Amino acid sequence: MASNSTVSELRKTSDVTDDEITAAVDAVLADLASEAYPLAKGWTLDLVAAIANHKASQDALLTDREPYKRNMVRTAILLAHPVKG
């Protein structure tokens, strides 16, 4: 699949699993300092950019509503474009 695919598209083709996406969400919620997160099968995701490009997740991270934070961060990751390398 082309390197401009979203994480969601890679999930549909089984290049990325739900567990790998959940691990990326956990990484964001633990510490958003990672710019080169190893997602799966050689795919790397810039978690900082994923959040920066998704305003709702930025806003969610400022709340105390844990399920909302998790869902918005997951959405940001699903919409992000990882790179193969």
Rank of each mutant, 00 (worst) to 15 (best):
V83W: 07
I21Q: 05
R65Q: 15
H81L: 12
T17E: 10
E9N: 09
M1F: 13
T13E: 11
V25D: 07
L10I: 10
L45N: 01
V7C: 01
Y37F: 02
T6V: 11
T63S: 07
P67A: 08
A50R: 08
V48Q: 01
L29V: 08
L78R: 06
E66S: 06
A36K: 13
L62P: 08
V16A: 01
V25C: 00
S5E: 07
T63E: 05
S57D: 07
Y37S: 00
R74M: 05
K69M: 02
A60E: 12
S3E: 14
L39R: 02
K55F: 15
S5C: 06
E20C: 05
R74N: 04
Y37L: 00
A40R: 03
A27V: 03
G42Q: 02
T44K: 04
K84V: 07
A52M: 13
V28E: 02
Y68H: 06
L32R: 09
A50E: 03
Y68K: 01
L78N: 10
G85D: 14
A56S: 11
P38N: 00
L45A: 03
S14A: 14
S8K: 14
K12R: 15
L29T: 13
D26E: 12
S57E: 11
L78K: 12
N71I: 11
M72S: 05
G42A: 03
T63R: 03
P38C: 00
V25W: 00
D59R: 14
A40T: 04
T13V: 09
D26T: 09
A80I: 12
V83N: 14
A50P: 03
T17C: 04
A76Q: 12
S34Y: 07
V83K: 10
R65L: 15
E20S: 03
I51S: 04
L45D: 01
D64I: 15
V16N: 05
L78G: 02
T75F: 04
M72H: 12
A36V: 15
N53Y: 06
P67S: 08
D18M: 06
